[in-house]
Design a binder for these strands. Sequence first.
DNA 1: GCATGATCATGC
DNA 2: GCATGATCATGC
Length: 466
Amino acid sequence: MTEFPYDRHSKASIITYAKKLIHQTLRFKCKEILESNKIKNKGNFGQILEKYYFLYEPNSNSEADFKEVELELKTSPIKRLKKLQYVSKERLVLNIINFMEVAEQTFDNSSFWKKNKNLLLIFYLHTLEKNFLDYTIEIVDEWYFPEIDLEIIKNDWEIITSKIKNGKAHELSEGDTLYLGACTKGSKGGNLREQPFSQIKAKQRAYSLKQGYVNHIIASLSNKNPIYGKIISSLEVAKSSSLEEIVVSKFKSYYGKTILEILEVLDMQINQSAKNFYANLSKAILGIELNADIEEFSKADIVVKTVRLKENDLPAEDISLPIFKYKEIVLQEWEESDMKNILEHKFLFVFFKFENEQLVLKKVKFWNMPYEDINEVQKVWEQTKEVILSGEIVKGFKVDKNGKKTRVTNFPSKKFSPVSHVRPHAVNADDVIELPIKDKMTQAEKYTKHCFWLNNSYVKQIYLQD
DNA sequence: GCATGATCATGC
DNA sequence: GCATGATCATGC
């Protein structure tokens, strides 16, 4: 029988032992690693810690790691930022969703809740140039979900479960939910599982906490709470309506009003020419201080997009997404790509429409991209990658009447797909970044920054739905 | 009237 | 310096 250097029946003892890791590294704390010398140089921080520090074998039990006290150990990488000190490097991945069993569970007896109701979190500083054995452990503490968060998480769990019950496990997306996501897990999406109410195989997925939610955990464990404004004011509110319902109802009273009328009702002065005017207007409508972050939105990694529709309901402009780096995108696979990650976010669209040359608030809408459209964007993404790798970005040139030359490219245009296209997004044509291979026609080693855009015709459809 | 390449403005 | 929301210019 193994002797543990801590008492497995005492949570306090486990946590005290765990906290000895603060400011230490695996290499220093797990002496046996050096002696056994068998550790592969592969990023398996959690398993090493379990085996050589907590002295139990890594497992995939449905019970929590310290089952005697229902405490689950989780390790996760963080990054250092200038302002916010620490942020999570990624989502926090929890247990795998058992598609075959979850339909028969309730939240309270679910495998998710049994395993994760109380977490022992160990955050280490991910440093590119270091071997993972030398990463410094920065934060060690236990975590309980606050009651209000738990209401949202329960709702998230129900959304995931009902999708599985509807035979749509293959259509799950992190964007379906707010704090608790269903993220893919396994090599390059090749890990397919059967589901109970459909013959279609679904990607293996795990419960996960959104990156924004983990940021919040990190901030509260290190007593560095950023200034937050809450939409959900109390547990009663959280129990009686969803976040989405509350937000929509707050905006609803301003539907049909022009921006000036809204400002008048709000009785607020907001600088209309400021870049963040629409963000501030939304905060004001939601009753959030302008200098605060919206707590629920940042925890749920919600992307807010303001859209101005023309009189014919077509958005005046396409919607830009973050620029991509040519050298990086060609190294990515779709399943792990930045683009797919963005599209698996929850969006909040705030729709204004030009009526008599005034912008009128028409509606707000929470949205995440449906499964089939994400697959459609994959084609655009793959095509983009192919064009970059072929070295044939520039197809030719056009000269306008002033003699000005513009380039014509092979990047997927609006004709290529009804959902998304690729276009420049730069200060000017000289605002360039490196290509992985030279462009054949121009011999350029760098090219104007580009990004993916959501087609305005596609966004119009989102506006017109329900 | 729209598609596409290009650019501007602001804030951190 | 850079990301990002916003907008423009031209030709079909």
